[in-house]
């Protein structure tokens, strides 16, 4: 297999891995296998998968550096856009199937329920990142500004974890595990940034 075909195959596999949870949910929904409260189940599953993919997206850069595999970076956009798709479906399900466009109730939720306020903030911040994910937008913004804008993920992902943590009733373990991973990934970035700053004057 030549390099190009292999690339395409790997890319296809990544794409499929991101798409699989949605297919699985759709399949279960279609077969009436989402339990007694399918709307609640669907919203939760979509939210959790959105968060998982956001975290995977956040892990790609450190992995690429640590494993010295810079080409991993090319999956960042796919993973990030899939994360956005899950989050968007999560929100859509809340607005449509759960609340049935009851805008008054939704507005109250956003203002009065801190976990929804936080989730909504994370979504709003995620939108510009999805919108500027095209090559055209990258060119238009220029790499420096683009990179600055996309550092919003360092805020968005923790907000997603907090959103999850705040809605849990008794078992805080799953959101705390996600939180620990995010802390590790952001901690690595801070450590990297500090190291670079220290190294730079030495070089100059």
């Amino acid at each position: 297999m030549d390099r190009r075909a292999l690339d395409r195959l790997v890319y296809g596999l990544v794409w499929l891995a991101c798409f699989a949870p949605l297919l699985w949910l759709a399949w279960r929904g279609f077969n009436n296998d989402l339990g007694a409260n399918p709307i609640d189940k669907l919203i939760r599953e979509l939210g959790v998968w959105g968060l998982r993919l956001l975290i995977v997206g956040l892990a790609i850069t450190p992995l690429a550096r640590i494993l010295k595999q810079p080409r991993l970076i090319r999956f960042r956009r796919t993973v990030g856009l899939f994360a956005f798709a899950y989050v968007l479906l999560h929100l859509t399900n809340y607005v449509v199937t759960d609340q049935w466009f009851d805008w008054a109730a939704i507005g109250k939720d956003i203002l009065k329920r801190p976990f929804i306020t936080v989730g909504m903030a994370a979504f709003v911040l995620l939108v510009p990142l999805a919108v500027t994910s095209t090559n055209w937008a990258l060119r238009k913004l220029g790499p420096v500004r683009w990179r600055k804008l996309h550092r919003l993920t360092y805020l968005i992902v923790p907000l997603g974890v907090i959103h999850y943590l705040m809605l849990v009733k008794a078992d805080h373990q799953p959101p705390l595990i996600y939180g620990a991973i995010v802390a590790l990934l952001l901690g690595w970035r801070m450590w990297e940034a500090t190291r670079k700053r220290i190294n730079r004057p030495a070089r100059g």
Binding site: N37, I39, D40, D98, A105, K108, D109, K112, R113, P114, F115, M166, L167
Partner: peptide
């Protein structure tokens, strides 16, 4: 404190 009790499914 975290969610509305006004309605139910």
């Amino acid at each position: 404190p975290r969610w509305s009790q006004a309605s139910e499914r």
